[in-house]
Amino acid sequence: MDENILDPDGAREKLAAWKDRVEQVAADTRTMSDRLQEVRVTAADPSGLVEVTIDSTGALVDLTLTSRMQRTKPDVVSRTVMETLAEAKNRLADRSQEIIAETVGTESPAARAIAESVGNHLRTDPEESAAAPAPEPDEDDENRSFLEKW
């Protein structure tokens, strides 16, 4: 029989160490949550038509359209807004996963699950962007979204 089981002092030490670990995990989790809630990401398209800012949930909190919008077809403006919003969400997913790694680490299954969930919630599928309608052949470069110019 294991003599350590009957050792009250050893049991108290193990219990105190376990309690300290639990308290540290709770503190790290609170820090992660606070930092994630504060995150905001701004992205602009390379042509300077659109700038979007999103909050920690991926919700649009600011949209800036430059005067170039007046010379650009509405469908190109809307497509550029959506592409820029998708880019901002991908950046938010990256930043959120960095915060998770910095605060709770990546070793535990729970931390990995949180990081994966954040990524799945925010990231856009590249195939969705590729499904956007192609521009008309006579459309000039100025009226094309930045992703179409690639």
Rank of each mutant, 00 (worst) to 15 (best):
V104T: 05
V104M: 12
V104F: 01
G105V: 07
T106V: 13
T106Y: 04
E107I: 06
S108I: 09
A110W: 03
A110E: 14
A110H: 08
A111F: 09
A111K: 13
R112M: 09
A113W: 03
S117Y: 00
S117N: 13
G119F: 08
N120I: 06
N120W: 04
N120Q: 14
H121N: 05
H121A: 14
L122P: 02
R123W: 00
T124F: 06
T124M: 00
T124A: 08
D125S: 15
D125N: 15
P126C: 02
P126A: 05
P126L: 04
E127A: 15
E128W: 06
E128L: 11
S129C: 05
A130Q: 13
A131G: 14
A131T: 04
A131W: 07
A132S: 06
P133D: 12
A134V: 10
A134R: 11
A134N: 05
A134T: 08
P135G: 01
P135T: 04
P135L: 06
E136L: 13
P137K: 11
D138M: 12
D138P: 03
E139Y: 00
E139A: 06
E139F: 02
D140I: 13
E142Y: 07
N143P: 00
N143T: 10
N143S: 13
R144Q: 13
R144W: 01
L147V: 09
L147N: 05
E148G: 00
E148N: 03
W150C: 04
